[in-house]
Write a protein that binds this DNA or RNA. Sequence first.
DNA 1: AGACTCACG
DNA 2: ACGTACGTGAGTCTC
Length: 599
Amino acid sequence: MVKCEIVNTREKLNNLIKKLAKQRAFVFNIETSAPDQFSVKLSGISFCFGEGEVYYINFKSLSVSPFGKGGLRGIFEDPKIKKYGHDLKDAFRILREQDILFCGVAFDTMIAAYLLNPGARTYDLDKIVQAKMGEKIAAPESLLGEGRKKISLEAVPLEARAAYFGERAEATWRLVEVLDSELEENSLKKLFLEIEMPLLPVLAKMEMDGVKIDADLLEKYSDKAERDLAKLSDKIFKAAKIKFNIDSPTQLREVLFNKLKISTAGIGRGKTGLSTAAGELQKMKGAHPIIEMLMEYRELSKLRSTYFEALPKLVSPGTGRIHTSFNQAITATGRLSSSNPNLQNIPTRSEAGQVIREAFIASPGFKILAADYAHIELRIIASMADDAEMIKAFRAGADIHRQTASQIWGIPSEKVTPEIRQAAKTINFGVTYGMGAKGLAEGAGITFEEAKKFIVKYFTVYEGVRNFLEETRQKARDQGYVETLFGRRRYLPEIYSPIPMIRAEAERMAINMPVQGTAADILKLAMIKINDELPKVSPAAKMILQVHDELVFEVPGKEIKKVAGFVKEAMEKVVKLKVPVVAEVEAGDNWGKMEKLVV
DNA sequence: AGACTCACG
DNA sequence: ACGTACGTGAGTCTC
């Protein structure tokens, strides 16, 4: 059992601070409870900086804040003292609320564990400690319970709290060394030190800054959507001659296939029966007028519940803005994800979706600036594959899909028809996913046979790409993992599966990850660079969102051009590929109505 | 809790 | 013969 000293007096706190000031590094973890979804309440901080050096500060026992003058502030703001911890981004935000500029962020064990195996289900500390050191430490459920019986941290006796958090801090301290050598052994140290750790404070800042929302606009449209949905429902019930729950796939299936007797030929199936997904409804179009009504209903209903209704409720009363979480240890490929709310899937395609984007606004005097990489994944393929023809196409600088169509069919690019360009676009897009002929046929609206021929032709012209894809599959089989340009790895044990379908799935993942992951690496590098230099260009400008190949900023209106030029340049110069890297910039009063900028 | 559906890149 | 594009998060229904 780890001994943990409870710091509950001014004197003990002063002693701890003196000790911390002398350390080269320490592990810490801030313990909080959440009275509501917008705020946290601090209850303690645990520390460990060596054997027998385990402490738990109990806030309630102290008459003054430990963050005050002469308190922990100097320790956390000293960049020479390295800080270790598990999930430090949260700590960053909490410290910032205490007006502390967290410095010396050196080792996040959650992120290290993620890089070592980005496919893991969770990176809970107790699971990592078990996996990496073969030790059992108490899981959060053992302290707080779970489900309905879950209790607040406040309700746990001090001794039990100290023991639990002390044990975790001490385990984290030893875990750092274990993970550090593993990163080293797997050539992941550079990625960790030069991309992931520097990115962490950048994400924390973006989360804290948040994004401004026109909640009134969303609420207004929510009401309108509700009225429209009621009208649509009536129409659907009349067409079906029965009232039912349109939101229930089970009931909808019954109505479509049993009551209305729509043909089930060619309709896909799920685990529970025939599917009513958008793609399947598309196939049924023309069989009955109800289908189009259903498609319209589905689209509006989705937007209403997921965006119109949900977003206004998430505006923080403190800042009047929406604060997402950018998760740095979730995806198998190295991308970020966004949650609570997810701001990486805000609609863009439909008309109603456009309205939602218009609700993402800038503060008075500011504008929204968006910068996105043009065809970044295809450029990465061209470069990684070192494909002569595709490189030539990109260097020519014109419409890449037109170039592809021209090269494949050997016709001058001005003679490329819209249909043939569309097919080229679909395959250019699909090649990064390991697409087959069926997917291409569906995506490009051509027959299976045509698609097969097209793919053969494509890989004859882009021989480098074909070889790259095959080499990537082979590499996955040889070493059990694939990697990005920057050495980020994804392990693919299914590549050895005796089941052909599972193996094929793994092969497609093997092809996709180096491409998607390299794009993620590049944008992460750009974010770090932009975060460093943006204050010099425009002190009031803020980077507020990242959407996989796009960065969104809130910028003083007068500085738009200057910032746009800087961001574009930073994104384009952050990495050197065998093809030009191009970023496009646009600006507007909101995220929906934007105009392209020429910089 | 799991399935289904669908929003994004 | 079959199912087949990669990566996410969230709302809703069903059991």
